[in-house]
Design a protein around this nucleic acid. Structure first.
Length: 587
RNA sequence: GGGGGCGUAGUUAAGUUGGUUAUAACGCCGGCCUGUCACGCCGGAGGCCGCGAGUUCGAGUCUCGUCGCUCCCGCCA
């Protein structure tokens, strides 16, 4: 790091350097002016060093020191000395030494910053985002951005070691049906036509396989014009990979090694390989969600059998209209107050459940508003199925299958959190496999792809494509960490015939398929190798690695929830001239 | 599109059933201070209480609207 401006960085000097003459450059973290001696903590991204201005040893340097303020940029020169006995600071890596300054240069002054550059002040996010370049000076942000670099470096090294090529794909590309809303870019040279920013490099990476590149990866920006969340930004980064001549297990094995390397390097965590695999069906049955948090039990219990002959109106009508009844047994939950149970009702209502039935298993019997509607045999079967013991709280949802599963799945997570069932330090990966190919979209009255339209069906389900599309399973897999989807992928369709069939099922007309995806169908017809791949959300992975509450904490320049940039003011209006060039009229 | 939370000095917050001059801490400015490291001591400046209406003798406080930030539902192949 030695250069004109510095001989060392601010985190480097140790007792072994005592006696050396050094030059440091950095920002003023803090200054303590004693009238006589002046102390300044000089900061750069590597650390802090205390530099001392002493009027007796260096009167000229000391004379200017009184005017130095926070966040000034200084260059200092002097000798590394041992701190006097009793003044060593054990909290600082450089706490054994200080630099006795004899020459100082103010490289730049700084206005008073809108907030202090420390890691204790909790500043409102809007202020942080407006002055992001100052926020990024703070320790937690420096940590996050540096860790992010280390992760991408690990990924590049690991994939390079495994013969992957990093290949760029276009940012100005084609809008395609299905999926998220596109960000569009008008074409000046083709008035009235638009590029779309990629939602992912999906089609291009498949074309790279057709081209014979065999193993591709890219750390790449993707764009989706949908509403934001704590873990969703309109532009985000994927670790995107595609392989030829592989089956699912090849991909899973290679990727597990990569994930294990990342978590080892960043968190010192030794992964237990291979990661457990759960079928989609099991995930939904037991956890209610396709991204199960397996750090704690509290499984969903199917009670359709128990209540098959129920006279209880609510349960009867749900079962008669193809709905399901499931429950949770919260051990020790009987002590929850009526208000606390009402709060649980509010949780399931968010996800569309109309009610939440409950039973407190007390020593003197079952306390519940509904148990009087149950037959004795049902009560017995229920107690057995749910392994009810004194002190338990049994909770039920009866609704359409999707609503029952999702609302109880979310309630399970809520209870896991609230009741302290989750060990926050635990890291539990699992693969979710054997997803269905399609779901029925009630609003659009057509099938939609669960993963994406290029995902291959399981070989044994090929013949069901036409007859029973909803029963067809896909060669798709998601990697889930502590209930959060880290990434997902699939083996792709590599022949044009099957691909055309899938488009048909998705109700994409031949003509439209030709127009939108013709180039892919063409490519598949020229000897496409069997191939598949996976993509990971880098931002989300960083958020989990660093334990941050929001994806914005691991992105240097994130957008607000309304997808604006408080720092630059984007998006903004443009000149009439620019619009004219693009043949765009204001609405 | 819908539901919840927040908005008061530069920053973080307090502000009672509506009632005198809107508080505090940190930061900032000035002075003092030779071993501090969240330095200390003394003094000072700093406010469109997000914005706009309304209710009222009187609004930081109540009502409505609006803007911004945020969490969630929908949406996100």
């Amino acid at each position: 790091m030695a250069a004109a401006y510095r001989s060392h960085v601010c985190g480097a000097l140790r007792a072994a350097d005592i006696g050396s003459r050094v030059k440091l450059s950095g920002w003023v973290q803090n200054w303590r002016d004693h009238g006589g001696v002046v102390f300044i903590d000089l900061r750069d991204r590597y650390g802090l060093t205390q530099v001392v201005f002493n009027p007796e040893t260096a009167p000229e340097a000391h004379a200017g020191a009184h005017a130095i303020r926070s966040e000034f940029v200084l260059q200092v020169e002097g000798e590394v000395v041992a701190r006097p006995a009793g003044t060593v600071n054990a909290n600082m890596a450089t706490g054994e030494i200080e630099v006795l300054v004899d020459r100082v240069k103010v490289l730049n002054k700084a206005r008073t910053t809108p907030f202090m550059i420390d890691d204790i002040s909790e500043i409102g996010e809007n202020v942080r985002l407006q002055y992001r370049y100052l926020d990024l000076r703070r320790q937690p942000m420096q940590e996050a951005i540096i860790a992010r670099h280390r992760v991408t470096k690990i990924v590049r090294d690991y994939l390079d070691d495994n013969a992957f090529l990093e290949i760029e794909t276009p940012m100005l590309t084609k809008s395609t049906p299905e999926g998220a809303r596109d960000y569009l870019v008008p074409s000046r040279t083709n008035p009235g036509s638009f590029f779309a920013l990629p939602q992912s490099p999906q089609l291009f990476k498949q074309l790279l396989m057709v081209a014979g590149f065999d193993r591709y990866f890219q750390i790449v920006k993707c764009f989706r014009d949908e509403d934001l969340r704590a873990d969703r930004q309109p532009e985000f980064t994927q670790i995107d990979m595609e392989f030829s001549f592989v089956e699912r297990d090849d991909i899973i094995t290679l990727v597990e090694g990569m994930i294990a390397a990342i978590f080892k390097e960043i968190k010192g965590f030794d992964s237990d390989l291979p990661f457990p695999r759960i079928s989609y069906t099991e995930a939904i049955e037991k956890y209610g969600l396709d991204a199960p948090d397996i750090r704690f039990a509290l499984p969903l219990v199917d009670l359709c059998g128990v209540f098959a002959g129920s006279e209880f109106k609510v349960f009867r009508s749900v079962l008669d209209s193809q709905g399901i009844i499931k429950g949770l047994n919260l051990k020790g939950g009987a002590r929850l107050s009526r208000k606390e149970i009402d709060d649980l009702l509010a949780v399931v209502q968010i996800y569309g459940a109309k009610g939440l039935a409950w039973i407190k298993v007390n020593a003197d019997g079952w306390q519940s508003p509904i148990v009087k509607f149950f037959a004795e045999t049902e009560v017995a079967a229920l107690g057995r199925e749910m392994a009810a013991e004194v002190g338990d709280l049994l909770l039920f949802v009866a609704d359409k299958a999707e609503i029952t599963n999702e609302s109880l799945g979310r309630l399970r997570l809520h209870l896991g959190e609230k009741m302290g069932l989750i060990d926050a330090a635990q890291i539990s990966f699992c693969w979710v496999v054997d997803f269905p190919m399609f779901a029925w979209d009630e609003q659009e009255k057509r099938h939609v792809a669960i993963h994406h339209p290029f995902t291959a069906p399981l070989d044994e389900d090929l013949d069901k494509l036409q007859s029973e599309p909803l029963a067809v399973k896909a060669k798709a897999y998601d990697l889930v960490l502590n209930g959060v989807e880290l990434g997902g992928g699939s083996i792709r369709i590599h022949d044009a015939d099957t691909q055309a069939k899938v488009f048909q099922l998705l109700n994409i007309a031949d003509e439209e398929a030709r127009e939108k995806f013709g180039f892919l169908l063409d490519a598949l017809s020229f000897g496409a190798p069997p191939h598949g791949g996976i993509a990971f959300g880098l931002d989300r992975m960083m958020m989990l690695l660093l334990g941050r509450q929001s994806i914005r904490e691991v992105i240097a320049f994130p957008k607000t929830q309304k997808a604006t940039c408080l720092l630059s003011g984007a998006p903004n209006t443009v000149s009439a001239r620019q619009l004219r060039d693009l043949a765009i009229k204001k609405a």
